[in-house]
């Protein structure tokens, strides 16, 4: 009956959390402004009204304290969801994340588990400057012990959130501010999707072929899926048939889908809104090359933020972020059709 309901990503996240909280009393949420405000980016809207202050807890501005508390609560049998308001703030609390949440399972030889979700807002493009605009995908994906997801649309967000809550390992759920469908921030139309009302999960490590194509493979995730799709539509007019892959999770990484696609197209463009060096773009390219360098008919291309902090001023910020035009241009280069 309601499969035609189009939800925004923020509402899909809140719905996934509510469904889990209804069935599992060990799930609770804490973070800054997640109660009355409903989360600055709407991911917890409505939860306080339904579940009350015990299970939906506004915290002081004390990330080391409350994320550390999330680790302790998780090890004590709860399933906390903690929100780090902007991923950029990881600097004040990373120890709780990468030395505790991520390592305690290993340190205990598998005798302890840390089933917590750290959800955090990523991304720029709206002039919020270099401490509020990063994605930092690779920073988290680089460190062992955390699963890392970054959905591009509401359907995926709901399924991945439910899977994250039920997972026995710590999961970093990176949601892009510009995909949330907030009334006050521009969002691509395709980010809001049909979302079933009932609970469902999506597996981690399964990329989605958003657009099938035979000439070139565009690999990306989160906001850049929409930019890559815009590029693919523009390229289609020139007779270029691009395949677009949405990775959906960084850890685990679905190398198989990438390899299958590149085996078919022989050309690879990787797009990431994170910094360029030592990041996702390099990881994807290395995954192909170390398997079989012969798969590539042309040098791969990568688009990411040149290794500079995100500038505030609009012309400079737009310059450092990949967009449909730069993706299309890079694609033409791999096809030898530049200029």
């Amino acid at each position: 009956m309601s499969s035609n309901r189009q939800l925004t990503v923020s509402r899909a996240m809140a719905e996934a959390i509510a469904l889990e909280m209804r069935t599992d009393p060990s799930v609770f949420v804490m973070g800054e402004d997640i109660g009355t405000y409903g989360g600055i980016f709407g991911a917890t809207a409505g939860l306080l009204d339904e579940f009350g202050e015990e299970r939906v807890r506004d915290t002081p501005i004390s990330e080391t304290g409350f994320i550390g508390a999330g680790v302790g609560a998780a090890m004590a049998g709860m399933r906390p969801i903690v929100e780090l308001m902007f991923v950029d703030f990881f600097g004040v609390c990373m120890d709780s994340i990468y030395n505790l949440a991520a390592k305690n399972t290993y340190f205990s030889g598998g005798n302890c588990k840390v089933p917590m979700v750290i959800m955090t807002a990523t991304g720029g493009g709206y002039s919020d400057a270099g401490q509020h605009s990063q994605t930092l995908h690779a920073t988290f994906a680089h460190l062992p012990g955390m699963k890392v997801v970054a959905p591009s649309n509401a359907y995926d967000a709901k399924g991945l959130m439910a899977a994250a809550i039920r997972d026995d390992s710590p999961v970093v759920f990176m949601f892009h501010k510009g995909l949330q469908g907030l009334a006050w921030m521009a969002s691509p139309e395709e980010a809001a999707t049909a979302v079933p009302e009932e609970a469902y999960t999506l597996p981690f490590g399964e990329a989605r072929v958003v657009r099938a194509g035979k000439d070139v493979t565009l690999v990306t995730l989160s906001m850049m899926v929409h930019r890559a799709m815009d590029a693919a539509r523009a390229l289609e007019k020139d007779g270029i048939d691009a395949e677009v892959i949405d990775l959906r999770s960084l850890v685990p990484l679905d190398r198989e889908t990438i390899l299958q696609s590149v085996a078919k197209t022989g050309r690879l463009v990787v797009v990431d809104e994170d910094y360029r060096s030592y990041g996702l773009t390099a990881e994807v390219i290395a995954s192909v090359v170390e398997k079989d360098p012969g798969l590539l008919k042309a040098p791969p291309q990568r688009l990411a933020v040149p290794d500079v902090p995100i500038p505030y001023s609009r012309p400079m910020e737009q310059f450092v972020l990949p967009n449909a035009e730069t993706i299309a241009a890079a694609t033409r280069i791999t096809l030898g059709k530049a200029g």
Partner: peptide, 21 residues
């Protein structure tokens, strides 16, 4: 234009600010 309103630096009067609490 690199910093914007949360990142104002004026070394002439030794003023700086930051957006991280």
């Amino acid at each position: 234009g690199r910093g914007g309103h949360m990142h104002l630096f004026d070394p002439a009067v030794n003023f700086a600010c930051s957006g991280i609490i």
